[in-house]
Structure formats: structure tokens, C-alpha cells
Design a protein around this nucleic acid. Sequence first.
DNA 1: ATGAAAGCGCTAACAG
DNA 2: CTGTTAGCGCTTTCAT
Lengths: 342, 342
Amino acid sequence: MNFKAITMNDIARALDLSASTVSKALSNSYEISEKTKKLVLDYAEANNYKPNLIAQSLKQGHSNSIGIVVANIDNHFFSQVINGIESIAYQEGYNVIFTQTHESYELEVKNVNHLAHRSVDGLLISLSTETNNIDHLQKLQRQGLPIVFFDRVSDDMETHKVIVDNFKGAYEATTHLIKAGYKNIAHITAANTSVTRERLSGYEQALTDNGINVNQQYIKYCQHAGKDTAEIKGILDELLTNAVSPDALFTAFDRITTVTLGLLHQLKIKIPQHIALLGFTNTVLADVLNPSLSTVYQPGFEMGQEATKMLISLIKTKRLVTEFETIVLPTQLFLRNSTLRK
Amino acid sequence: MNFKAITMNDIARALDLSASTVSKALSNSYEISEKTKKLVLDYAEANNYKPNLIAQSLKQGHSNSIGIVVANIDNHFFSQVINGIESIAYQEGYNVIFTQTHESYELEVKNVNHLAHRSVDGLLISLSTETNNIDHLQKLQRQGLPIVFFDRVSDDMETHKVIVDNFKGAYEATTHLIKAGYKNIAHITAANTSVTRERLSGYEQALTDNGINVNQQYIKYCQHAGKDTAEIKGILDELLTNAVSPDALFTAFDRITTVTLGLLHQLKIKIPQHIALLGFTNTVLADVLNPSLSTVYQPGFEMGQEATKMLISLIKTKRLVTEFETIVLPTQLFLRNSTLRK
DNA sequence: ATGAAAGCGCTAACAG
DNA sequence: CTGTTAGCGCTTTCAT
């Protein structure tokens, strides 16, 4: 059982023409007579001819498709980014292939290489939490593959990037908690990404600016951005048995935020009476959670759009690009019941 | 700016060998001496050689990749299915390419054809709500492309299918509402899919079996499975201004369920006091919604796994397959506060 | 206006 | 053990 579609040679043979004539007719070349064009087009139509895109790609050296690498698609933020990417890509005639790293460095390398050597014309990537080393990307960039970073970026490569103002988003969130009367604000975040560092400094700066000492015992890292519920459970246990248990949590990643909410429920901890909760998440359910959840929202759709526009411009440029841009989008703070004034 | 990776010919030229020797060395053929193998392997390693998968696919007529078509990835159910698919596919050495139809027939046709002619070895598909006609799939099947349906299937094609027991899931859900004391149970569902019909009959049968008349005014269809919030808003308005306003809602699709919850909140309708809510959804947040949400859960991960196993077996079979199987997985009913006894 | 031929990168049958 | 050759389906010169 093997997929066999009709080819140009089949058409050529059937109509007693040459393959090159058929090719030209199909692409509406001025060299071909109207009569022949019609003949070919009608036959192709009638026999459901579709060009073999693999052969086209091999011949042309490009494929009109772009590759996407994200941590997980079952994440509100990333799925919004993907929708933004698609919206621009389709409009510009590009197809989109996406892959998940599941926060694994190994899978990231594998997927990146697979995409590159399946001849995507460019790559859009948000690094996995495990990734420290971007050799795999640098090699491809040196070979001429256009790469644009979004969300979790690396300083080790010069290219276009799209991020949100993580520092400001975290600063505003933390400041809100302080103004609402919370004093002992813990921070749960993912290990090792650019996003981690920026949000952490926003958190620390807000504390400092309000005369609160940064307590290292209140800063907790998850290895895989919240995929491991047990790990977050352990972190909460540590925080809650601390000499001074925190009265608010500021969570920095989508999955960490929602998992934390679930765990606090299981522990029968009242929000915000016992502990307030505010986190980065793009869930559309924030309003209908119990309690409704104060969130830092990231413009995922717009991020996808901007990154894609930049990538396509890189793809289309013939000359070497050496001037790169980093777009910084604003976050939005939505205040709901999980951070009601103390 | 064009991606140029090192090729086998580059290696052959550099080492003064022929391309076929290099090819054989790289695939560890018994024909090649250890010395030459080492020479080639080392050079390839040092120069970051990666085979051009496009060329391999063209040559071999297959690509070790499978294509997935779903409505939307930002849907808890579908993203779980995708994770199930990946788990089997990777293990069997296949890569996965997925695309979204956004419930559009046109996009479905486009994506299906794109995948097929980009030489995926097989296709896994859940139909869009708009799809009535599966010519596009039948043509490909006739040409020998293995196709497996999951979730939203069609009777118009003989092939392997994986579904859940939609009738039973809906029957149990409706019966639960009745037993809990609800009398006027409305049903909001998506238009036009196999899933719609099966869940609708489960709902109707449960009513009938309990001596309740089926009221057509209580059965409402959304055109795009809940993507259009305004449409659901309109439906709720109609239901609530009905002569006898329903005291319970049974929603049949993931997105419809969560959007309905949000809209009831906006309308300041108390759940379950004013209206109970129970729906199909795979959201992991069901426990922490307000109120916690009674749900019909579908084993998405397992569905993805089963479908992929079947597809890969079809791909690997050389002879024509004429005996097809439909796997039916059970749903699970989770009772929470949104359907508390009246 | 049409066709012959070469080649994209790779594999495989066949020769040596 | 290594090389030559042909060909996957398509595009693109270059002839005719």
C-alpha cells in the first residue's frame, strides 16, 4: 500500500507532450499556446493532479513553509502565539509546521534539525527550559537559515526577537500585591530561561522599591515550567512550613499558575484570605475560576504575528542581514478576586 | 540569504570518494570498509552533515512522518490527543506534522492536500464542523494514502476509526441531571458532526427513558463548535427567555462548555441554583472553576495513541487492507458542584 | 510553441 | 570494497 499520485510525467505521456511543456502550461507560461494550456489544465483538473511538493522543494531549494518550536501546545499562551503565526503565514503564502519540545533540550535539538533538514525556509523558536546551549541553532544560522526568537530568547545569537516586557509585567504585579497589603510575597518560577531572569528582577525591584527585603527562601524554581505537579506541591509545602509562611504568591509561568491554583484548592487554603495568588497566564477561564484569578496577560497572538512578519522579511531578503531588532510588547495586568485587598 | 547545508556530494568531493560510497558508509553498509566508514563518519560529524530529508523522501517515496488534522489545538481535548499521537509516533520513528482547520471546510481541504503532497505517509483526521463532503479524503485514499479517523468521523469512508462512546457519555450525563432533580434540560451542541448526532441521541434517549418529552426548543446548535462566543450568547438568551426557562444545561463540546460557563457568570446566573451545568470538556481546571464543573471527560491521550497505532499498522502493511476496525473508548463522568442535587 | 537535457540530494541496482 | 549510473518529480536553460 503506497501513496501514488498522478505526476507531470503521467500527464505528459497521456497528452503526448513533454514534461517541460506540461510544467510550463501548469504555471501559465507565456511560452505555451492557449490551446495546450487548456488541454493540460483540463486533464490535470479531471485527474486531480497536485504537484509533488517534495520534488518542488528539492528542485527550488525552498518550501514556502516555516517551522515553529515551542515547549507545549497545550498552554494558553503558546496556542495563542501559534494562532498569530498562522494568521500572518497563511496570508503570505507560507505553511506552518510546529513541534513541541516538552521542555526537553534533546527534543529541541531533534525537532530543530528535523525542521531545518526538511527544508523549512525559516524557524521561529521559544527555547525549552532545559536549553543552555544553542549550538544547534548557531550552526543552522551560519548555514543561512533565518531564525527568529520569541518569548524565551537567547543572548547568544544576534537575530530578530520578540518578547514581552517581562520586567515591567512582574514589577507591576508585585507592586500591586504590595499596595494591596501583602507583605510576604513568594515567587514561583521556571528554571533557566530569559523570561525567568527578567521576571525575577521585576519582582525583586518592586520589593526593594517598597522597602521590602528580598528573601531567597521565597524564591522557588520548577525544573520544567510546571509540568511536574509533584514538584510544585513540594515547593508549596516548603513555603507553607516556612518560619514565616507567605501571604501571597506571584507565579511566573502559565502552567505554574494554574497548577498552583489547583494545589491550593486541594490543600483547602483560602484564596486570597490565607494566601493571595497572582500569576502570568493567558487562560481564558481566569474570570470563572474560584476565585477569579488576577493575572498578567501576554499578547500571545500579537507576538506570533510580529515574529512571523520579521521571519518572512528575513526569508525574503537576499542580502546578508546584520541589523537586528528586538520588539518588546506590553503585558496587561488583570485584577480579580484572587488578590483582593487584605 | 539561502539555507545551504553540506551535502553528500560535498563529502564525496572532499574525501575523494563517490557519492554512493559516502551514502553507504553513512548507513553503515556491510559493503564499506571500517576505515572508509570512519573517515566518512568523522568528516560528516565534524562538518555537521545532516541528510537532506526532502531528497530522501523524494527518492524513497515515503517520509516517516504522519500528518494530523484537527479543528484547533487550543482545545484541551485535541491537545491531549496530539500528545498521545506523539508518544506513539516518536517511539515508532515517525515525525508528526499537525495543522488546524479552525472548523473551516476550505482549510481542511487545503491542509489535507498540503500534507498528502508533502508526502506524509499517512493521515490522522478529526473532521471540521463544516465538512459534509469527504471527496478530498476519498481521492487520497484511492491513491493509496492510509487514513485513520478519530473523534469526528465519517460514515462515507471505510477505514480504521477511534471514537469514544458518545451515546453512552451523553446518556449518563443526562441521566445524572435527571436523577439530581433537574427537569428542563437544554442541550447545546455543535452543528453537523458524527459526535453531535451520537451525543444528541444519548441525550434524547435518557430523557425518553425517564418519561421526559424531548423539547426541540431546548436543542441548540452552534455553527463552529463554540468559537463564536456571540452565537452562544444568543442561544443562552433564547433559552432564558423561553416560556419555561431550562434549569440545567448539557453542553456537548469542550469550547461550548467553557464559554457557556463564562457567559453564565457574565449574566450573573447562579450555578447550579438557577441553572445547573454539565458538559463535555477535558479541561484540567474543572476542579478549580466556580463552581467546580461536572464534566464528561474523554480519554484524549489514549485516543491519540490508538489512532496512531492503527495508522502505523496501515502504513506498514504492504497488501491491501479491507477489514477495518472501529475502536470505541469509554468516557468518564466527573460529578462536581455545578450539578449539585436540586 | 515545444522539447531535450541537466540537476536538486539521495539511494540502489549493477559493474568492476 | 568502491564506483557508475539511473531515477524519484519537478523546473529551467537552451535548442529547435
